[in-house]
Structure formats: structure tokens, C-alpha cells
């Protein structure tokens, strides 16, 4: 009797755990979806968003104090673009090189040293990178380039490149390692050099993974906040050169949000730019997902 009861409770508790775990999953995911909806809600109400998209993105300056106030984010996304492009332009070649090195060239003990080193690089908080960039580069730029204040897009891009590097490198290494050993043996078996195999076989085979590495780096660089906030100079002027100061989107959000009246036009403009950032990053992620799936399917076939 008792045993029967016990068994019943056990089975019942299994069902309960199943329901609870589903509930947990549901709660978590629901909150995350709520986030997207809420950012959208806070942004588009009253802005006539779709109508003014061109004004918002290109034509108007960011001048909330002017009469009448205007809230365009041209300077911000131009800055974001410059900083992101610069950082990826540096991090992608170097990261692919490190990936190739780790997967093809490095002896085992070197790999064992490099792996944690890259993890450390990835684990350093953004604010520390910002601080590091400030005390090393910003001060020196003031003397090297005779600038009144050293912050500029170039520095932000450089530091951002270092921040993105470990992600690009380890994803690229994974992509190269994923190429079947058979293929390598066959290629080397024809008496060609490593460079030739990398160029003709490895790169093509690892291509989806390399795209994913780029996309991952791009998403990281776009959303990075603290370092660019501290290094890019935070000015609403549109930058004209790499040594100009600028204000990437994330820096704009961080600078302005705390001092903004809730549900004012400016508040909505800030959330609208946040929403654009969110959509871009989600789009990149959809791309990574499809690449990964195609990659998996191909390696199964």
C-alpha cells in the first residue's frame, strides 16, 4: 500500500517537475520577448516612426535643446559604422590568422597556452578596456597628434578590435578545426605546401564558419558600449576623419538616457535608436543561425 503510494507520488512529482521546468522556460523566454516588445513600445509611440525614418536617420541633427528640438541620429550611426568597420578590419585578418595558427600550425603545448590567453582577453570587462585605452592611447594621442583631447574614433576602433579579437579568433579556429582530417591528409598527400592547402581547401571548407565568426564579431562590435563611450569622445558633431571625435549609438543611449524626461520626444528617439540596434543585431543572429544550420547539414551529408 505504502509502496504503491510512494510510487504514485514519484510519478506525480515527475509530472510536476516537467510542468515546473516548462514554466521556468516559459517565464524566461516570455521576459525576453517582453523586452523586444517593450523597447518597441517605448520608441514608436507618437514619433510617427515610419513616416520620419529618413529625417530620423539622415537629415536631422541631434539637437534636443534647440527650438524646435530635433532628434536625428545620423552622427551616431555614422560613428558606429566607422568604429565597427575599423575594429573588424583589424580583428578579422588577425583573428583568422590566429584561428589558422591554432588549428593548423601551433604545437599542442602552444595551443594549451593560447586557449586560456584568449579566454582572458574575452573575459576582461568592457569598462576595463575603456580605462586601459584611456590611460595608454588617449594620453599619448594628445602628444603624438597634438590634439586638445585625445579621444577619437580611431582609438575606440583600435580598442574595440582587441575586444572583438578573441571571439573572431576562437570561432575561426573552430571553423578550421571542423574541416575533416581526411581532406587535409589527401591534400597534403599530393605533395603540396601548407599555404596551398589553406588557400585552396581549408578556406573554402571553413567558409560558413568564417562568416559566422565575422557576424559574431560584428554583433559584438555594434553593441559594445562602455569602451566606445569612454574612448570615442562623445560629441554630437558628425565625424569627418578617424581622428575626429564621435558618438556611437550605444554611447548616445548611455549618455542621454539618464537625463531624459520619460516619454518625451527625446526619450522616444533614444528608444527608437535602441530598437534599430536591436533589430540589426537580431538580423545578424538570424544569419549566423542559418549559416550554422547549413554548415551542419553539409557536414552530415
Amino acid at each position: 500500500m505504502i509502496r504503491h503510494f510512494l510510487a504514485k507520488t514519484l510519478y506525480w512529482s515527475d509530472a510536476a517537475v516537467k510542468k515546473l521546468s516548462f514554466l521556468a522556460l516559459g517565464t524566461g523566454v516570455a521576459f525576453l520577448l517582453l523586452m523586444i516588445v517593450f523597447v518597441l513600445r517605448e520608441s514608436s509611440l507618437g514619433l510617427g516612426f515610419a513616416m520620419n525614418l529618413f529625417d530620423f536617420l539622415v537629415r536631422q541633427p541631434w539637437a534636443p535643446m534647440a527650438t524646435p528640438p530635433s532628434h536625428g541620429i545620423f552622427h551616431a550611426w555614422i560613428s558606429t559604422l566607422v568604429v565597427t568597420g575599423l575594429s573588424l578590419g583589424l580583428a578579422i585578418p588577425l583573428g583568422f590568422g590566429i584561428g589558422l595558427f591554432l588549428s593548423e600550425v601551433a604545437p599542442r603545448w602552444v595551443q594549451q597556452v593560447m586557449q586560456p590567453a584568449l579566454e582572458v582577453l574575452a573575459g576582461i570587462p568592457a569598462v576595463v578596456y575603456g580605462f586601459f585605452g584611456y590611460v595608454t592611447l588617449v594620453r599619448n594621442f594628445e602628444t603624438w597628434f597634438d590634439m586638445p583631447a585625445g579621444e577619437c574614433l580611431l582609438i575606440a576602433g583600435l580598442i574595440l578590435a582587441v575586444m572583438v579579437l578573441p571571439f573572431v579568433a576562437s570561432t575561426a579556429a573552430e571553423a578550421f578545426r571542423g574541416v575533416a582530417q581526411d581532406l587535409r591528409e589527401m591534400a597534403y598527400g599530393l605533395g603540396v605546401t601548407q599555404l596551398y592547402v589553406m588557400r585552396r581547401v581549408l578556406f573554402r571548407k571553413a567558409l560558413p564558419g568564417l562568416f559566422a565568426a565575422v557576424a559574431l564579431g560584428l554583433a559584438r562590435a555594434l553593441g559594445e558600449t562602455l569602451a566606445v563611450l569612454m574612448l570615442a569622445g562623445n560629441t554630437v558633431a558628425v565625424p569627418h576623419s578617424l581622428l575626429d571625435r564621435g558618438q556611437p549609438l550605444t554611447a548616445l543611449l548611455t549618455t542621454e538616457l539618464g537625463e531624459t524626461v520619460v516619454h518625451s520626444d527625446k526619450y522616444q528617439a533614444l528608444f527608437a535608436s535602441g530598437f534599430i540596434l536591436l533589430i540589426v543585431v537580431l538580423g545578424i543572429n538570424v544569419m549566423i543561425w542559418t549559416l550554422k544550420h547549413r554548415f551542419l547539414e553539409r557536414s552530415h551529408a
Partner: peptide
């Protein structure tokens, strides 16, 4: 669900900050 979760893991933390401010702090 896994796709959603992976997307959200990639969302920049500043966006979480925006949401936290608008939803938790203000709303």
C-alpha cells in the same frame, strides 16, 4: 525556443539596460 534564446544571448547589454530602465525602473 533555442533559436530565440540564442538570439537573445547576442542582444547587446545596453538594450537590456534600456528595457530595465523603461520596464522595471519607470513602468
Amino acid at each position: 525556443v533555442r533559436f530565440l534564446v540564442e538570439c537573445l544571448a547576442a542582444v547587446p547589454s545596453i538594450i537590456y539596460g534600456l528595457f530595465g530602465y523603461a520596464f522595471l525602473v519607470v513602468f
